[in-house]
Every structure is written in C-alpha cells, then in structure tokens.
Measured scan of single mutants.
Amino acid sequence: MQRVNMIMAESPGLITICLLGYLLSAECTVFLDHENANKILNRPKRYNSGKLEEFVQGNLERECMEEKCSFEEAREVFENTERTTEFWKQYVDGDQCESNPCLNGGSCKDDINSYECWCPFGFEGKNCELDVTCNIKNGRCEQFCKNSADNKVVCSCTEGYRLAENQKSCEPAVPFPCGRVSVSQTSKLTRAETVFPDVDYVNSTEAETILDNITQSTQSFNDFTRVVGGEDAKPGQFPWQVVLNGKVDAFCGGSIVNEKWIVTAAHCVETGVKITVVAGEHNIEETEHTEQKRNVIRIIPHHNYNAAINKYNHDIALLELDEPLVLNSYVTPICIADKEYTNIFLKFGSGYVSGWGRVFHKGRSALVLQYLRVPLVDRATCLRSTKFTIYNNMFCAGFHEGGRDSCQGDSGGPHVTEVEGTSFLTGIISWGEECAMKGKYGIYTKVSRYVNWIKEKTKLT
C-alpha cells in the first residue's frame, strides 16, 4: 500500500490518463441519441435557420407576430419608411378606419389613436360632414345658397324668414311668412316636400332668348283662358290664391305678392273693366268669414305684352289694390325667389296649380277651390304637342294621358313649387288646347323671366 501511494504521488498524470480511459469505455446513459432527441424537440425550422439574422431580410411573422416588435424591426421587413409607417399605425392600436367614419364618399386613412378623412370636392370637416359648395344638395341650405369668396357655403332665406341657429334652416321672422300653410287642420295635408338634388348652379339658368321682337298675326285659340281631375282644397291650404270678379264672377285667378299687390295673367284683364279681388276665398257660393274683398285701382301688364300681336306672350300683369290686405292664416303671400332659384325650383319637376275653373272641358265651374299636382314636361315634348308657338318664356306641365289639367277660369292662378315646406311661385296658368285632352298640356308663363320686374313694381313704400 505504501508503494502504491508513492507511485500516485510521483505520477499524477498517469492516474488522470487511467481515469479518462475508464470513462470513455463506459456506456453513456444520461444523453439520448440524435434521433430520439429530435422526437422530443420537434420544432419547425425557421426561415433563416442556421444563418445569422443580421444578414437576412426581415420576416413579418418572425419579427412582429411571434413577439412584439419595434418600429426598427418592422422597418427591416418593409425596407421602406412609408410602408412601415402605414403598417405601424394599425399594428400599434388597430384600424381606426374600420367603422368607416368618413361621410359623403370620403376616404379614410388610419393613424395612431386617430384617423384622417380625405374629402371629395365640396366637403370638409373631420368626417367630411361639412358642405362647402352650393353645387351639392344646395349646400344643405333649406332655401338659398351662395358661395363666399373663400368658396364656403353661405345660406340665406327669402323675405319674412331668418336663418336658424344651425345656419342652414329657415324659420319665420314674421307672423305670416310667405308660402307657408298655417291653418292647423290643413298642415297635415301639406304636399310632399321637395329635397334639393345635386345641381350645376353655374349652368342652372337656361341660355334662352326671349323672342321679344317676333311679330306674329293673332292666333285663334280655343278655350285658351284655361282644375280638371283635381281635388277639393281645404280652407287655408292655398292662402296665396285669390279669385278675380268682373263682368262675371271667378273669371280668373291670381296670387298675393304682398298686402297691396296681386300677380295674374295679362290676358285676364281689360282696361276700363272694374275688377274686384277676393282673398281668403274657399267656396265661392258661401260666406265663410275668411274672405277679404278689395278693388283694383291700377293694372300693370308687362311692358312687352301686346294682345294685338299675341294674347299669351309675356302673359303676366300686376294688380294694385285700393287697401292693403290683412295677412292671416287664410290670406298669405306666395314666396318669389330670384331668377336663378325660381328656375331651379321649376326644374324640380312638379308643381301645384289651383283655381275655381271648370271641372271638365266646357263644363261647370268649381264651387270649392280645386288643386292638382302636375309634372313638368320637357321642352321637346311640349313643342311636338301643339302647332302653336311655345315661346321661351312659357313652359308645359300636365299629363300625356289627359284627364287632369287646369281649365277655363283658372287662368292667372299660381303654379307653385314647394321647397322644404315653403311654396314659391314658378308659373302662372296661361293657356292650353281644350282641357285635359290626351297628348295636350297646360301652358304656363315662366315666372323666372319676370321676377325682377315683379319685385321692382310691387315694392311697398
């Protein structure tokens, strides 16, 4: 034993070699072989497995989906700052455009905790909710729209109204504003409101030439003092309507412009014939205590009207009353817009006519005020429907199939267009061939041609 100890002390290297040989010859039971080890760690190889990531292109799944990435790591994937920024906006807080917040056709661009709407022409605001041009839906104005110097929408209202708090709607500024039905039992019968379409306001006024200088022999019209197929109006439903009495009662109609003036057809009036105007009328054979009678003290036909040349060209006249009318729910003026808007309103496509005229061709006159909704007829169809001249200051309205029309005794009465609950004068009943005849239409004086003249002559002093 002493000898062994001496050998170990003198030859430590020998001992180490012996131990190493023993270990190498022993069977290893701690580690699995290569094949079995792979069965336990069965993990798919990654895209760049075996390579240094710093030297390969980034992978979106590896960089940002398996674990949260930084902007720089995302930049490695896209290799483009702009594309990385677009991805980053949604990656950080989701897609803010998912709810489609942009209105009126706006395009949404996502941002971090926010979004941006790219608005089409005519709109602005956070969600493109603000109209900035009158060309689109009248700028959301209830009545009139004008573009300011910086191309912003400025709404306005006709006389007797003021802008509401929203700067879009119009509200009454006087007790009985024009064009409004205020009798409670008839307010439910107000005709369907007309909503502004998209309009090209630059070209809204037709490029028409008034044929002022045409000389033409007097034409022989049949029954051209021209509501057939209409309905009984309720008291106060058309408070701007008046009836004219002269040699015979209810020979023509008219509309209240203001307390002192009536507008009617020029062919209705004769110099030297006494005319009485009755406002607030409903049943011409009954006294309903809503009527107001006034005498006409002055007749002003349009300066281009000449019955000797043509009885229905420039067929418009103004009547001055001896005493002002007292405005109330049964006696209310009709609204008159400017030339541009009167023309736009007419193009809405349908209007209402009213009167006490004959209820059928050569038949009896109506006792109760009649009204009828009539569609506008395109000019080409209008011209083809008659052998008589249709001037540019006239328009056609009615039904091709016949059966409904204005008729004798309705002449001078109103053709009105309702705009968001307020009625505007767009025409004056003038003439036609018979009444409600198939293929024939009622012919009306186009008020847009005469609004400046009306307003100039009827100013209240």
Results as ranks from 00 to 15, higher is better:
440 K>Q: 12
163 L>S: 03
102 C>D: 00
92 V>A: 15
92 V>L: 11
391 Y>F: 13
124 E>N: 12
253 G>Y: 05
52 L>F: 13
362 K>P: 11
157 C>D: 00
319 L>C: 07
449 R>L: 10
409 G>W: 07
432 G>R: 13
94 G>E: 07
340 E>W: 14
182 S>E: 07
94 G>I: 07
429 I>L: 12
294 R>G: 00
420 E>S: 14
372 L>T: 14
334 I>R: 00
186 T>I: 12
232 D>Q: 09
375 P>R: 13
180 R>A: 04
86 E>A: 15
396 C>G: 01
188 K>T: 06
46 R>C: 05
263 V>K: 00
146 K>Y: 13
67 E>C: 04
40 I>D: 05
125 G>I: 00
286 E>G: 09
240 W>D: 00
14 L>D: 01
12 P>Y: 13
195 V>R: 09
318 L>K: 00
395 F>W: 01
216 Q>M: 08
245 N>H: 09
300 I>L: 08
35 E>I: 07
145 C>A: 03
176 F>Y: 12
213 N>V: 10
67 E>L: 08
197 P>S: 12
256 I>H: 01
403 G>C: 08
134 C>T: 03
458 T>L: 03
411 S>N: 13
343 N>E: 13
29 T>E: 12
138 N>K: 12
272 G>I: 02
310 N>Q: 08
426 T>W: 01
356 W>T: 05
218 T>K: 08
126 K>Q: 13
141 C>V: 00
76 E>A: 04
263 V>G: 01
315 D>Y: 01
227 V>L: 08
130 L>P: 07
33 D>V: 10
99 S>T: 14
233 A>E: 04
53 E>G: 11
19 L>W: 06
307 A>C: 04
10 E>K: 14
174 V>C: 04
426 T>I: 01
223 D>V: 08
45 K>S: 05
164 A>H: 11
385 S>K: 10
310 N>W: 04
277 V>W: 01
341 Y>S: 14
295 N>G: 05
66 E>C: 03
271 T>W: 06
395 F>A: 01
410 D>H: 14
326 V>I: 10
211 L>N: 09
77 V>D: 14
389 T>P: 12
425 L>Q: 03
224 F>K: 12
456 E>T: 11
152 K>T: 13
320 E>C: 02
242 V>S: 01
180 R>C: 03
212 D>T: 09
318 L>E: 01
24 L>Y: 06
55 F>T: 15
147 N>F: 09
429 I>M: 14
411 S>Y: 13
218 T>M: 07
10 E>P: 14
221 F>Y: 10
176 F>D: 02
440 K>C: 09
442 G>W: 04
451 V>S: 14
439 G>S: 12
432 G>H: 08
356 W>K: 11
387 K>W: 05
93 D>T: 15
30 V>R: 14
88 W>V: 13
377 V>P: 02
399 F>A: 05
302 H>F: 08
306 N>T: 03
159 E>A: 10
276 T>Y: 05
394 M>T: 05
304 N>D: 11
91 Y>N: 15
23 L>H: 03
434 E>A: 14
410 D>K: 11
142 E>Y: 04
312 Y>K: 06
32 L>F: 13
340 E>T: 13
363 G>F: 08
251 F>L: 09
250 A>S: 10
212 D>H: 10
42 N>I: 12
165 E>P: 14
138 N>D: 08
445 T>P: 00
78 F>R: 15
448 S>A: 14
198 D>E: 13
16 T>E: 04
73 E>A: 06
76 E>L: 09
397 A>S: 05
416 V>L: 06
228 V>G: 05
23 L>W: 07
367 L>M: 05
